[in-house]
Structures are given as structure tokens and as C-alpha cells.
């Protein structure tokens, strides 16, 4: 029943943050970051098994690991950016959150350029 522990931890962290935020708003942000990191660490070892399944499927489909690595990097960038942007929004800094998301989009596009070029060339080759 790990999910119960995780939910319980999340609820306790939420109550603590709400209580602390009313007195010391700056500590509330720090508590929020700490709770997020701890929740991530709790499910970290589960991510390994998911990666194994994805790698096996990729092998069976014959897709190069280079492209899978790119996809996983993009997903990781998206998650980290979402995490950071959400914390910034919670702290009332919506502008910074938008900048973080903008930077993450640029990073994703940079990583996606080889795949976009590949599709472009592929489509041009298909045209008779």
C-alpha cells in the first residue's frame, strides 16, 4: 500500500505548508519543494522498471536507442520544467513560471530538430 503512504505524506505536507504559509510564506515554498523532491524519490526506483519495459519494446520494434534517448530526455525536460513552473506559480511568481516553460519549450525543440529533419527528408523522398 505504498500509494496510501504517498497520499498520506502529500496530505500532511499540504497541511504543513498551509499552516506555515500563513505565518512564514517563504518557508512554505521551501516545504513545497522538499515535499516534491521526497515524493519523486519515493517513486524513483519504480521508474527503472518502466524504463526496462520501454527499452524492451523499443528493441522489439527495432527502433534505435538514440531516438528513444531523445524522447526520454524530452519527457524529463518537460517534467522538470512543469515541476519548477508549478512551484513558481505557487509562490505567486507566474512570470518566472512562464519563462521556465518557455526555456523548456526551446530545449525540447532543440532536441527534436534531428527528428523533424528526419521526417522532412522522409516525406520529400516519398514524393515522386
Amino acid at each position: 500500500m505504498e500509494v496510501m503512504q504517498i497520499v498520506a505524506f502529500g496530505l500532511i505536507a499540504t497541511v504543513l505548508i498551509v499552516v506555515v504559509k500563513s505565518q512564514r510564506p517563504e518557508l512554505g515554498v521551501l516545504l513545497s519543494v522538499a515535499a516534491g523532491v521526497i515524493l519523486f524519490l519515493l517513486v524513483l526506483d519504480k521508474i527503472g522498471s518502466i524504463m526496462d519495459v520501454i527499452k524492451e519494446l523499443t528493441d522489439r520494434a527495432g527502433i534505435s536507442m538514440i531516438y528513444l534517448g531523445t524522447i526520454l530526455k524530452i519527457i524529463g525536460i518537460a517534467y522538470i520544467a512543469e515541476f519548477g513552473a508549478q512551484i513558481c506559480r505557487d509562490a505567486g511568481e507566474g512570470a518566472v513560471a512562464t519563462k521556465i516553460e518557455f526555456a523548456a519549450k526551446i530545449m525540447i525543440m532543440v532536441l527534436a530538430v534531428p527528428i523533424v529533419v528526419a521526417v522532412l527528408q522522409l516525406l520529400l523522398m516519398l514524393v515522386p
Binding site: A78, E82, A112
Partner: peptide, 13 residues
């Protein structure tokens, strides 16, 4: 994929 503004971008790639 994460839910939020990033999802469409990752989905496209």
C-alpha cells in the same frame, strides 16, 4: 507525458 503546457510539444515529437 506530463499534464500541462508541455504536453503538446512532447506529443508532437
Amino acid at each position: 507525458l506530463p499534464a500541462g503546457e508541455m504536453r503538446p510539444y512532447v506529443n508532437m515529437v
